[in-house]
Design a protein around this nucleic acid. Structure first.
Lengths: 217, 217
DNA sequence: ACCCCACAAGAACATCTGTTCTGTTATTTT
DNA sequence: AAAATAACAGAACAGATGTTCTTGTGGGGT
């Protein structure tokens, strides 16, 4: 007597996820037997059984007697969009939870932002942070902006990056410079503010900024 | 001896168009027999014959032995994207060609930028400008940024807007304030720069900024 | 006329595929 | 423990569907 509501069993989640992946890859929905193979199930009847439940729960829509007649409520944008997870906020003094490597759990209930593919430009490991507070205004980044970051451990000199200062336990967006002296200079964009100097072993690059999106009005 | 090249016969164009419509409506590709019915053809072999040609010409992609295994090179936008015309650049001292009213010629060969619908949020008369030069850096807008504007003639106090100064023949992005004195104050965002004061009849609001998109790296 | 070729009609075929039927197993309820 | 229910397994059926085969048509070119 569980699952009366909209909660999906793990198998059902897996099926939905597979449908989405399949659709993304092939631009058309999978057949029942594709799902059997893709989810390692044993029988088409199992799929049908669960698809019926999924339909009742509103997770999918089916067209009877039509091959591959499965619709997702929000069809994965086969074309030009990507869903980038917004994994948190960034503000001075706040830690960033960084995703482990590149195995994202897109299906998790994390917020996502939909961006056109030309912004991501094929890069892997892209995530987004919402800027909280005005502490990054010197980098032309404002409160409420969304910054898109590529998860990398190293950046070129002069790139804007999300940087974790270990001892201070602070995350911040700054321009990154490795000085000839071996020190690392974190440079704000405004001449009113001086740079921050840190030793390399106190600095951890979390990602570099590849885009900023600001909505107003 | 026609159609050796990529040109499509009227029947083939019709088929492609039908596939696109069908896909748009159902979120999955049509079967061969759907095309027969939808295009008023007489036989599945006619469809198959033409689909093979279409595939050779690169108009579609087919997956053999897979029902509804038709892909369009650019699958129809399932509704989340809009193409916004980039009608020019904005920089101090440069005029902006502003579109007449709200009847855009989207099909014109003007550059467009594709943005997700959630950025436009249903607004009409949205266009984009590419920022040239660093003259707007005070508004957290940088060289190379794309600003999305909604074409309006009036803005609220405090909104960032594209403003045309008639006598100076200058276009600029500034925060707009109507002062109690009746003058208009155009306020940059940086305290280092003072505001510009102008009389209302010298000011023409061209649009208000609804989003900023900056790509880096 | 003749032949060649693009194109189409219609039927037939072999899969593919959604659905159903009959059980079986595990879990929960009484 | 017995009954009820959820979930799964396997097979089979019927319709959907891609593909192919044969035949027909109409026009150009020689």
């Amino acid at each position: 007597m569980q699952l009366k509501t909209k909660e999906l069993s793990s198998k059902q989640q897996r099926i939905v996820e597979f449908i989405r992946e399949f659709w993304l890859e092939n631009n058309f929905p999978p057949s029942v037997r594709d799902i059997v193979a893709g989810c390692g199930l044993s029988s088409t009847s199992v799929v049908d059984y669960n698809l019926k439940i999924l339909e009742k729960k509103g997770a999918i829509r089916r067209h009877r007697e039509v091959s591959r007649g499965i619709e997702l409520p929000s069809p994965p944008d086969s074309s030009n969009n990507l869903n980038v997870p917004v994994i948190g906020q960034i503000a001075a003094g706040q830690p960033i939870p960084v995703p482990d490597n590149d195995t994202w759990d897109i299906t998790s209930n994390a917020d996502t932002i939909e961006v056109t593919r030309d912004i991501v430009r094929g890069r892997e490991g892209v995530y987004a942070l919402k800027v909280k507070g005005n502490s990054m205004i010197e980098d032309l980044i404002n409160d409420g902006d969304i910054v898109l970051l590529q998860s990398v451990n190293f950046v070129e000199n002069g790139e804007t990056a999300a940087i974790w200062l270990k001892s201070e336990k602070e995350a911040t967006l700054k321009k990154f410079f490795l000085e000839p002296s071996g020190k690392i200079r974190l440079q704000p964009a405004n001449s009113q503010m001086g740079p921050i100097y840190a030793s390399p072993d106190n600095v951890e690059v979390q990602g570099r900024v590849i885009a900023v999106i600001r909505r107003m009005g």
